[in-house]
């Protein structure tokens, strides 16, 4: 347990908390920018099983922020590159890889095996798909999104707290989000997602439920906007 002693000496964690972390099964959707930091954080704290979904291959333009991937892995499937990093950093972590584009059909054989989901996808379309899958399976979803110098995060308990469609029922999911983004913005939001994950595993603290946390790195401001379930939500109004 020497590896985790700086975890376990925290009173809210202890040996019992570390056992919970080791028993946790977390699905990370996206092994890119957000995924790099989330995967690194989950591996560092000792999460027992990490599932990674991503069908992309590593490109040179990814490396301004996707730091778990090595230059020599260019052209390699990202989930394999991510697994390679985890195995080298913490071989105690079990890694399951899914080199697929998640859709309304194939999620059924993947999501059920995990305690909750972390959104590290990189498009509106995939983020709203994940929101829909989480609602359909009643899996807690930790959402994160980034662009340029900032981003947002929110934790969704389907049927209990606001989902993405509650706050954006008219979302333009096909909007192209190919904008620039810098590593410090990505790692900030990904670290917030990681902290939400740790709190969920341990059952401590206050999750970002019914809260949309917005980060602006240029102003260095964090704003928590108060949300609530929308009785007219096209997705979750009846659950």
């Amino acid at each position: 347990m020497t590896r985790y002693i700086r975890n376990t000496i925290i009173p809210q964690i202890g040996e019992a908390g570390q056992d919970k972390i080791r028993a946790a099964r977390v699905l990370v959707c996206g092994a890119g920018g957000l995924g790099s930091t989330v995967i690194a954080n989950l591996s560092a704290i000792g999460v027992g099983t990490i599932g990674i979904v991503d069908n992309d291959v590593l490109e040179l333009s990814n490396l301004n922020r996707q730091y778990i991937h090595k230059f020599e892995n260019l052209g390699k499937v990202k989930v394999d590159s991510a697994k390679e990093w985890i195995n080298a950093f913490n071989p105690e972590v079990n890694v399951n890889t899914y080199p697929v584009r998640l859709d309304h059909e194939n999620y059924k054989g993947i999501v059920e095996d995990y305690d909750f989901i972390i959104d590290c996808f990189d498009s509106f379309k995939s983020k709203f798909l994940l929101n829909d899958i989480a609602t359909a399976t009643c899996k807690t979803l930790i959402h994160g999104g980034v662009t340029e110098f900032g981003g947002q995060a929110m934790t969704i308990f389907p049927g209990k707290t606001a989902c993405l469609r509650c706050i954006l029922p008219d979302a333009d999911e096909n909007l192209n989000v190919l904008k620039g983004v810098v590593s410090p913005a990505v790692t900030t939001i990904a670290s917030i997602e990681s902290m939400e994950a740790l709190k969920l595993i341990l059952g401590i603290g206050e999750p970002l439920a019914n809260k949309l946390l917005c980060y602006n790195g240029l102003d260095m401001t964090f704003k928590k906007l108060n949300t609530e379930r929308n009785g007219k939500c096209p997705l979750c109004k009846n659950i």
Binding site: G33, D119, F124, K127, T147, G150, G151, Q152, A171, C214
Partner: peptide, 10 residues
Amino acid sequence: LELVGFVGGG
């Protein structure tokens, strides 16, 4: 009022 853009990158 707080007007906040919702971003979709990852």
